Simulated assay, not measured.
Amino acid sequence: MTDRPITLITGASGGIGSALARCLAPTHDLILSGRGGPALDGLCAELNAAPLALDLTRPETFAQAVAGLGRVTNLVHNAGVVELGGVAAQDHTTWTHTLAVNVVAPAELTRLLLPRVRQERGTVLFVNSGAGLRANAGWGSYAASKHALKALADALREEEAGHGVRVSSVYPGRTATAMQRKVREQEGAPYDPAAFTRPETVAATVASVLDAPRDAALTDVTVRPGAGL
């Protein structure tokens, strides 16, 4: 039996998720969650991690999916979706899908895994977004979901303080990922990864929050592209 922390990462097959998995692999045992497929399978094989297939649009399936898990020290909610558009242009299907994946799924997975995280005195970490702090035109549904995710984290932090569970939100700015490429396409702008923060940098920030000494709680951490870019 290992004494290493066991960290579950959602959205682990690419972008910030896979960068975080590689960053943590030397010191953490990993459970990597995604929709399944070659990318997730390959990463799990590379890092000797356990795969966990989850459909984030179907939270009613989570209980069965996680029933066989053992210890979980840290839960990192990294998965998310984005669809740009004005409030006048986006109908309820976009809002429902965005809120389901970005808010409802993390809330349900947290609920199910809290007993394990409490036992470990671990951390629940939400990879949020700059849109969780400010909503710009065309970002209504996404920003609303990320503001709700901040509210979830803030409430959970107060509720779990007595159980020794740390709750953190990390707010990356624009990061060089496939999601950012999609965003730039929707904005009608070129995608230049050199203009954005590297996912490895965000991953290192998340790792520092998870590994912070127990007498510190890094509750809200903002990561922005550096001035030197």
Score class of each variant (00 low, 15 high):
39 A>L: 14
40 L>H: 02
43 L>S: 03
46 E>A: 08
47 L>E: 07
50 A>C: 04
57 T>D: 15
57 T>V: 09
59 P>A: 09
61 T>S: 15
65 A>K: 05
66 V>R: 02
69 L>A: 01
70 G>S: 01
71 R>G: 00
71 R>Q: 00
73 T>V: 08
74 N>V: 06
75 L>Q: 00
75 L>D: 01
75 L>C: 00
76 V>G: 04
77 H>G: 10
78 N>E: 10
80 G>Q: 03
80 G>K: 00
81 V>R: 05
81 V>P: 06
85 G>A: 10
85 G>I: 09
87 V>N: 06
88 A>M: 12
88 A>Y: 05
89 A>W: 10
90 Q>V: 08
92 H>N: 07
92 H>P: 00
93 T>S: 15
95 W>I: 11
96 T>F: 12
98 T>A: 12
99 L>G: 03
100 A>L: 14
100 A>D: 07
100 A>Q: 15
102 N>W: 08
102 N>H: 09
106 P>C: 13
110 T>S: 15
113 L>K: 01
115 P>H: 10
116 R>G: 02
117 V>N: 02
118 R>T: 14
118 R>A: 14
118 R>W: 04
119 Q>Y: 02
120 E>A: 15
120 E>Y: 04
122 G>L: 01
123 T>K: 03
129 S>G: 04
130 G>W: 03
131 A>E: 09
132 G>S: 05
135 A>I: 10
138 G>R: 09
139 W>T: 12
139 W>N: 15
139 W>A: 15
141 S>I: 10
141 S>H: 13
141 S>R: 09
142 Y>F: 13
144 A>H: 11
144 A>C: 14
145 S>V: 07
147 H>M: 11
152 L>K: 00
152 L>E: 00
153 A>F: 07
153 A>Y: 02
155 A>G: 14
156 L>K: 06
157 R>D: 04
159 E>C: 11
